[in-house]
C-alpha cells in the first residue's frame, strides 16, 4: 500500500516536468495534477509498475471550473471566456488495495487531452460522455461521437455553465 506522497515522488523522478504538483490542502482526497498531453505514458507506468499495479479505472469525469471571465455577447446571453475545463481520474489497484486521484486541466477554447483507452479499455465510454457533455476532444480516441444526446444535436455542450436551451428541436418545443 502506498500513500499519495510516495506515488508522487516516484512519478516526479521518472517524468519530471509532466507531473505538476500534489494538492493536499482541501478535504478530502489528495490529488496529483498532471500534464494533459503526456498523460497516457504516466498511466501506462502506473498500470505496469510492480509496486503500483493500478489495474482498474474507477471513474473519469469532466468538470467545468467556471474560472474565466463572464461577459455578455451581442444578443445579451451570458458566456464565459477563458478559464479551464478539467478532468479527474480515480484509479485503484485491486491487488495492492490502494487508490489515487489524478487531475488535468486544459483551456476552454481548445480543450484537448490524450486518451487512456490503450491503458484501461473501460475509459472509452467515459471519454465519449465527457466529450458529449463538455466538448473535450480526446486525441487518438477510437470512436469519438456523442453518446447520450442525439447524434445531430448542434446546440452546444449541455453541462457547461453557460449552456442555453434551444427553442425547438425537430418540431418539438423544448422549454416548459
Amino acid at each position: 500500500m502506498k500513500t499519495a506522497e510516495e506515488i508522487y515522488n516516484l512519478l516526479k523522478e521518472k517524468f519530471g516536468e509532466s507531473v505538476i504538483e500534489l494538492k493536499t490542502d482541501k478535504p478530502v482526497d489528495p490529488f496529483i495534477i498532471v500534464d494533459p498531453i503526456t498523460l497516457d505514458k504516466i498511466c501506462l507506468f502506473l498500470r505496469n509498475e510492480n509496486d503500483l499495479q493500478f489495474d482498474s479505472l474507477m471513474n473519469l469525469s469532466g468538470v467545468d471550473d467556471a474560472n474565466g471571465t463572464k461577459e455578455k455577447d451581442d444578443i445579451g446571453l451570458e458566456t464565459i471566456k477563458g478559464g479551464t475545463l478539467s478532468i479527474f481520474y480515480h484509479i485503484e489497484s485491486t491487488k495492492l488495495k490502494h487508490k489515487l486521484t489524478l487531475k488535468t486541466s486544459t483551456s476552454r477554447e481548445k480543450p484537448e487531452v490524450v486518451t487512456v483507452t490503450d491503458v484501461w479499455k473501460g475509459a472509452d465510454w467515459h471519454e465519449r460522455e465527457a466529450y458529449d457533455m463538455y466538448g473535450i476532444i480526446f486525441l487518438n480516441h477510437p470512436d469519438l461521437r456523442r453518446i447520450l444526446m442525439p447524434y445531430d444535436w448542434e446546440f452546444g455542450y449541455p453541462l457547461r455553465k453557460d449552456y442555453k436551451n434551444p427553442e425547438f428541436y425537430q418540431g418539438m418545443k423544448v422549454p416548459y
Partner: peptide, 9 residues
C-alpha cells in the same frame, strides 16, 4: 459543506 471534493463508492 467545506470547499473540496470526494469520491465514495
Amino acid at each position: 459543506p467545506p470547499e473540496g471534493q470526494i469520491y465514495t463508492r
